[in-house]
């Protein structure tokens, strides 16, 4: 880690170590920036959810806070008309591919999407876009937890813990483009995969795509 430096986020002076990523510096200082895909331990952030845009003085375009390293004297604004527009657009795009039935969702009230909507005063429904309505099969084969891909936002947290933390290799990203999804080998049931049922992937899921059943207590 580099030397200690001072930067300004939303007119507040904060200290950090040079080379740290802006997103985590902000969050540690209780400055909220929306995010879904960021994993602190990952050396090269995936930067795929496109929700953590901020303005940095001297930069011509908004940048993603998860990839931006902090430096001494940096001046950051977490909100601006451009940032708000991008976040709103990315958020609505994600909602268009997410089954929006909060009342029926086990993650109701603890869902990251709801948190983002609340913090940024965004609507939890589609205003300009039509829902994409893809067909998904719900996987209940594990018993202790359920995988419902229709709620998945492709943040990749589950794949990260599966591969890097518990080193099981049961699930991964497969297919390309709009078909990109988290599946097992051959798209089969989790029960037929190397999954050990440790439940780490369920714990890190920010939405209701992976959730424990009552059976698990």
């Amino acid at each position: 880690m580099g030397k200690k430096i001072t930067l300004t986020i939303d007119d507040r002076q904060v200290t950090a170590f040079e080379g740290e990523k802006l997103l985590w510096v902000a969050l540690e200082n209780d400055i909220y920036i929306p995010h879904l895909c960021a994993i602190k331990e990952e050396e090269r952030p995936s930067a795929s959810c496109r929700l953590c845009f901020v303005e940095v003085e001297g930069f011509s375009h908004p940048v993603t806070a998860c990839t931006q390293e902090v430096y001494a004297g940096m001046i950051v604004k977490t909100r601006s008309p451009r940032v708000d527009r991008l976040v709103k657009s990315a958020f609505e795009l994600l909602l268009s591919d997410h089954r929006l039935e909060c009342a029926k969702c086990p993650k109701n009230r603890s869902c990251e999407l709801q948190k983002i909507a609340k913090e940024r005063k965004l609507k939890l429904r589609l205003t300009r876009l039509k829902p994409l309505e893809k067909e998904y099969a719900i996987d209940e084969s594990m018993g202790s937890f359920v995988f419902d891909p229709s709620r998945c936002v492709l943040c990749g947290r589950c794949v990260y813990v599966d591969h890097q933390e518990v080193e099981v290799g049961a699930i991964g990203f497969t297919h390309r483009g709009l078909q990109r999804k988290v599946t097992t080998f051959g798209g089969g049931l989790l029960a037929d995969s190397p999954c050990t049922g440790c439940g780490r992937c369920v714990e890190v899921c920010p939405v209701g795509a992976l959730f424990f059943t009552d059976k698990a207590g």
Partner: peptide, 18 residues
């Protein structure tokens, strides 16, 4: 482009589809 998008980032994966 929609068919050739890698599907990683929100704007390209879903935006091009819409």
């Amino acid at each position: 482009t929609q068919q050739e998008s890698c599907g990683k980032c929100t704007f390209c994966r879903l935006g091009t589809k819409h």
